[in-house]
Design a protein around this nucleic acid. Structure first.
Lengths: 356, 356
DNA sequence: TTGTAAGCGTTATCAC
DNA sequence: GTGATAACGCTTACAA
């Protein structure tokens, strides 16, 4: 073998053991925390490891112990911000647990099926699956494995495993509550029908929130269309452009931030003050929301929490054996509501949410 | 150890060898393609592997051969679409090469430095680094490794390794050419000054394009501001809202799609036809661009090509030994211009770019 | 071409 | 608690 390609790093456990004058078994125990005492031996080992710039060879460790310290993530190829934020959140949680993150991105359900199968084979301690938009129930069909699998997001429990998702109903209820607490007595809802079942669920919950919170919504104020800026602009011009005597809502809730920004622009054009005369909220935060003027109050899924919960479920499954063996249920279903990021487009209220 | 946790998959190379009635060495050779003949033995081995649902244990393979078939990607925590698309492109290229992708996301230059150092230790055959926005030259300081490292994007060669980036100058020249070919003789440019050195480079190239292509641009048509929808709306109202006799450009080029969408809305409000009276182009595609009306012509970096080139450079470096040893230069620098995705906001021209 | 056998660096087992 | 030693599953000289 050419000299150009050798060990990446000269130090192995043997060198550390020699320098610390102990056996390799002791080094392994000290460095993996299986030896609790913090005596002279432990210090010597740690010092030697530091001096040699040693870190364990994960391949050897994985081979011997069957623990790879690796989480695998399978997700679709959407270029949506949500997806990017999910990866970031999971990466941070995985790093915090001193693990590595393996990512596979596929644009079809079939490719994702192959990917998950591949992940099951060997190198992952746990698998997180964000199902492709139109994936069927067959995502894990024919796959039998001891590797814990959890589904993140998606509209239905496709995998028959643990499932972490967003509570759409609770989310919009929080949005309506937010504007009502700030004085609104009537609300419009510009729905984005894209995620069909999600959209329907949200719309239903919106209507029940109206009753619960005694808020009025004219049927012309509830529209279903795409999530573009222009749609928000056009809907607002139609709703609010009818002269001073027209009946208009005191708050507008939009599925997408783009739509909400269209609303803001139209209201600005009509010289209607936000949040003074009308409050505006988006159910889904994006980068533009924070930099619009007025800055847009919007909602965001607690992805850090969801990522942490994913790892917790995986760790549990590994500790207890596969969930399906010890637990006859399909799998736990944990739902998180989105949280309100209060910005300038709604009135200041009693609470103050921090804007990350 | 509890029975719940054993081998992920019962089949190992020994089982395959037994079933195919050959030695494990032969199995290894057949399955790794080191044995070219396709005779009865090869078929028996492949059949046995298939029947046992066998796939190599990557940990064992990596341990023995020092080849992990893994590419590591370090990137910042931007939630921008560009970042998401980069990961997708790299993931696809890596999968096509039958490798795995390890991802680490960090929000500070220091964390990224640690990450790259960690990646260098063991489990990666090559490392792709997207530098944090404000990373200094110290990203790989103190890191010595045989693992090939390449920098993707970023404004300067921070790593002193091979570097793949976007040709901003060529990109805007292509944008100007695009509208000029379609009849524009005067152009406005709504610049986004965020990426300071990128922005400056682009602005400079814009101005030299004007001379080269004999296009006019009033100094009031070149503005530098944020990349929001509202900025595009406001700038357009100012430029075009001055009555019918005002001097207005025949094309508007925007750094960001959001800004361009603001331009479209304002022009619609002013009843100015797009692309008939004014063409609009964005230098950076996003999801909203395709769904606006009229659909927005915009530019997109050829990320698939850039990802493939990254892997090619890594493979080269591995084959030739570390670049720095055999090649005294800092590293190759490969630049790709963005490509025009022609949509409705510019007139139909001679060529027709496909919209992926 | 094929089989035999020696490792790769680590963790688990078993004596002490 | 510590140290010797045997695995883990694979690739690769080397011998046949």
């Amino acid at each position: 073998m050419a000299s150009s390609h050798g060990k990446q790093n000269g130090a192995s456990i043997t060198n550390v053991a020699a320098l610390a004058d102990v056996s390799i078994a002791t080094v392994s125990r000290v460095l993996s925390g299986r030896r609790t005492k913090d005596d002279d031996i432990a210090r010597r080992v740690r010092k030697a490891a530091r001096e040699l710039n040693y870190s364990v060879n994960s391949a050897a460790s994985a081979l011997r112990s069957d623990v790879s310290n690796t989480i695998a993530l399978s997700m679709p190829a959407t270029s949506t911000l949500m997806a990017a934020s999910v990866v970031t959140a999971i990466s941070e949680a995985v790093s915090a647990a001193h693990m590595q993150l393996l990512v596979g991105i596929d644009s079809t359900a079939a490719a994702q099926h192959r990917r998950v199968k591949e992940f099951c084979r060997h190198p992952a301690d746990g698998i997180i699956v964000l199902p492709c938009p139109h994936a069927g129930m067959s995502l894990t069909r024919g796959i039998t494995t001891d590797t814990p699998i959890i589904q993140l997001l998606g509209s239905t429990n496709l995998l028959r495993h643990d499932w972490i998702s967003i509570d759409n109903g609770a989310s919009i209820e929080l949005a309506v509550t937010h504007v009502v607490e700030r004085g609104a007595t009537s609300v419009a809802y510009l729905s984005d029908a894209v995620g069909s079942s999600d959209g329907a669920e949200t719309l239903l919950a919106f209507q029940s929130s109206l009753n619960m919170l005694r808020v009025r919504a004219d049927s012309a104020w509830i529209t279903i269309d795409n999530g573009t800026v222009q749609r928000g602009f056009a809907d607002t011009m139609r709703m609010f452009g009818g002269g001073t005597t027209a009946d208009v809502p005191e708050a507008v809730i939009c599925s997408s931030s783009d739509t909400a920004i269209g609303v803001l622009i139209a209201l600005g054009q009509l010289s209607i003050n936000v949040p003074g005369q009308v409050q505006v909220v988006s159910l889904q935060d994006n980068e533009a929301a924070a930099s619009s003027s007025p800055a847009l109050t919007s909602m965001r899924a607690p992805l850090q929490q969801m990522a942490a919960e994913s790892l917790r479920l995986i760790a549990n499954a590994r500790a207890n054996g596969t969930g399906a063996e010890t637990d006859p249920r399909l799998g736990r279903h944990v739902m998180f509501p989105r949280r309100v990021i209060a910005r300038e487009s709604t009135r200041e209220g009693t609470d103050e949410s921090a804007d990350a």
